[in-house]
Design a protein around this nucleic acid. Sequence first.
DNA 1: GTCAGGTATATAC
DNA 2: CTCCGACTGATTCGG
DNA 3: CCGAATCAGTCGGAGGTATATACCTGAC
Length: 475
Amino acid sequence: MTPLADVVAASRAVAGTSSRSSKVATLAALLRRLDPDEVSIVTGFLSGIPRQGRVGVGYSTIYGVEPAPGPEPSLAVRDLDQAITDVKAATGSGSAARRRDVLAQLLTRATSDEADFIRRLFTGELRQGALAGIMVDAVAKAAGVPAELARRGYMLSGDLTRTAEIALADGESGLRGVGFELFRPVLPMLASTADTVADALAGFARASVEWKVDGIRIQIHRRGSDVRVYTRNLNDVTEALAGTVDAVSRLHFEQAVLDGEAYRGETFLFDLLHADGDDLLDVPLEQRSSRLAELAPELKIPGTFTSDTREAERLLDDALAAGHEGVVVKDAASPYAAGRRGKAWRKVKPVRTYDLVVLGAEWGHGRRRGRLSNLHLGARDASTGEFVMVGKTFKGMTDELLAWQTQELLAREVARRGIAVLVRPELVVEIALDGVQASTRYPGGVALRFARVKRYRPDKPPEEADTLDELRALM
DNA sequence: GTCAGGTATATAC
DNA sequence: CTCCGACTGATTCGG
DNA sequence: CCGAATCAGTCGGAGGTATATACCTGAC
């Protein structure tokens, strides 16, 4: 019976160091001390996601409950796990009150350190610097198995707590038994980024160049008439994607696992991980792709295999002309590396930049505490000369830039509103973005998508900033 | 009792 | 989703 | 030849936009 206080202490120790090996050692030592049935519970706590998943309690609920902290640690790991289960079980009318009840009783028994841990666990803000990646290594170390083997188990099962249980109970042989199975989604392979098609092709003898469609990444499993669709976080979204289910149901095979993108009711497939009994994860992409072309010629995403930069660029132009984001360039010889963001897949998206005006900024948290971080960005309204807020960003800033802008913005302060400092609209900043979308939140009716700072433009006065109409034209 | 609107949560990008 | 920064492990450099 | 410097890869953490759903509350 492990006290919750041990877990809280380990979390503190982990948060207190930036050394990954030290985090792993601390976590592994804790895992080794646990009772077998506590392993999945604690693995979840320490990777920031309880084994029950999200249970419908967020910031507002958990910080709305404030009983006086207990003096002595008395909670066990299982008590917190049981409370989370109880909270999840509360649904329907009056459920919010029942949830608060369960939480109040729990927190009454917690010391202030424990209560703090519990609150951050519910809000997903554990911020101890150890999520799934570190936990996998800790599990391997605790179980005395190679890290690669634990990692493989995690990738193939998509389930960290289960992987931990298997590793600690059955060790190496248990993990080797974890295989690819239908209706148990694997973590999707991810892409890194490249600035140009030529950069992306570099180092590949031969590459697949495919449209990059901006929809929802999906993994589809089918056996006979049974079809399930999963998102990149392995959530089951079958019910929401009836069109995809229909389209895949019509294909001529008995069973398969497909990777693709759902976009406006259409389904674009770009990979095949399993087909009628054959696991294809370790087969080169070009073979998976040609087999996919046989199974699903109608649904296969537009693309081609080539080593010619010109041809790849033509495909990029086609994709953009068709209104899509760009292309993904993939090594034709690469296996399907579940869960990895490797260099074998590289996405190429053109970047647009705009010169916008800083209207204010918000104080940062964590490592950005004491710095003005999140910028409020305005576009110029050509008809009035006023500046209209169109979005925020905190991305693309180095520590040096953060320090500089804090100083410059405070010198232009005109008011404070909550955590925001509003400033005279004098500084122009060059912002890169993926596009704009219609907004109900902002007065101009447009919002920036994935805005990030490129650099400040001290050479440019605010009257020359880009206009609202120019942004609207992107919609 | 029913319905509309607001708040909170969760999950896509 | 996107970016920066810290750490790690592998490889190259230099005395 | 071995320790120091360099480099690439990995991970965490900073927080943006949207939409969908469930529940609660207040008006009628």
